[in-house]
Write a protein that binds this DNA or RNA. Structure first.
Length: 337
DNA sequence: CAGATTTGACCATC
DNA sequence: GATGGTCAAATCTG
């Protein structure tokens, strides 16, 4: 299937270029900050050459977020944000309409909240007590709507089914197949929310920490803590070791699934709840957007992963590698836009 | 027979 | 008390 880029995107090429260049520049600054403070990776360290590491991370993330927004044709809506605004958007109750990222395609919605509440379950010491748990209140979750029960590439085991109030269809609960072997905390539940055409809403909780997705999960976990996440940014790493690369490799694989199963028109009336991205962390929503471990965000952020389509064309790993190394020719990207 | 699914029970939270 | 999330025994399936 061939994808054409929206007019808005075509006309935003320059803006994309600007954002990417800014991101590259900021990444370079951050790199220098790390060089200056190799031995003192502690919170609050001041940065040289343009701000603290945290500020730079904010700006870089903001830059990439803007790029993604532009790629999705949203610049004209005034949603481009600066790094400083990320928190406002993510925690301010929904100024950023996440659905707009993919308005004509899947209805993926991110609801970023606190990640992995360790106290999610209280049964570890009371194994015989059925249903003894703590209702998840602030666990990290995101939603994906699909016209069919899509395979997201993970092994899931159903562990429950429940009729939900005001819902015609019962909700099915799944946990990761590797929950016990690898202590993978990923769970999801699937509920049919619409009959004609059939629409299934999958709500994911937690992230896969099981083997195949370990790297991406590590990155996501780390993104919840900007300072800690900095430990994963190694600009001189080989691409095999870089979290981004394993992520994008996965993107390619997941994209195939997406193409077959998740090409839909958005027909679900927006609910205030769904359209709001919340976060208690400055970065987590963006991290989700970039590196959701099972890639639901990327999968559903537009036509069959427009971004990853570019990456496919350009041998995606190499693109990111060069982008991160600052040796990427932005015009090369833009010619695909 | 091992692993997956079904289903009623249990319990925290609202 | 209603609801939603999870547990685990029973059952199914390959």
């Amino acid at each position: 299937m061939e994808w054409s880029w929206p007019e808005s995107v075509l006309s935003n090429g320059e803006r994309v270029k600007e954002e990417l260049m800014q991101g590259r520049e900021l990444a370079g600054k951050l790199c220098r900050v790390f060089d200056d403070h190799k031995s003192t990776l502690v919170s609050g360290f001041g940065g040289s050459g343009g701000g603290s590491a945290e500020d730079l991370v904010d700006k870089i993330l903001g830059s990439f977020a803007n790029t993604l927004l532009i790629l999705n044709g949203k610049e004209s809506d005034g949603e481009i944000v600066s790094g400083d605004q990320i928190q406002g958007i993510s925690s301010g109750g929904g100024s950023a309409d996440s659905s707009s990222w993919d308005a004509n395609h899947t209805a993926a919605v991110i609801k970023s909240e606190d990640f992995y509440e360790e106290s999610c379950k209280s049964t570890s010491t009371f194994k015989d007590r059925r249903g003894s748990y703590k209702r998840r209140k602030t666990s990290h979750s995101w939603i994906r709507d699909t016209p069919a029960l899509a395979d997201d590439g993970h092994g899931w085991r159903k562990y429950g089914q429940k009729r939900i109030l005001n819902s015609k269809h019962s909700r099915n609960y799944y946990r990761c197949t590797h929950k016990f072997e690898q202590s993978c905390k990923a769970t999801k539940y699937v509920q049919q929310i619409q009959d004609h055409p059939p629409m299934f809403r999958t709500t994911y909780h937690g992230n896969h920490t099981c083997r195949d997705y370990l790297k991406a999960s590590e990155l996501l976990l780390d993104c919840t803590s900007p300072r800690e996440s900095s430990n994963f940014i190694r600009f001189s790493d080989t691409k095999q070791d870089h979290p981004f690369f394993s992520f994008f490799t996965s993107v390619k694989k997941e994209e195939l699934v997406f193409k077959e199963e998740s090409i839909i028109k958005e027909e679900i009336p927006p609910t205030s709840d769904d359209r709001v991205m919340t976060s208690h962390d400055n970065h987590s929503w963006l991290c989700d957007y970039l590196v959701s471990p099972d890639l639901t965000t990327f999968e559903s952020s537009g036509p069959p992963s427009r971004f990853s389509s570019i990456l496919d064309e350009l041998e995606h790993e190499d693109v990111i590698s060069r982008l991160m190394m600052g040796s990427f020719d932005l015009d090369e990207v833009l010619q695909y836009i």
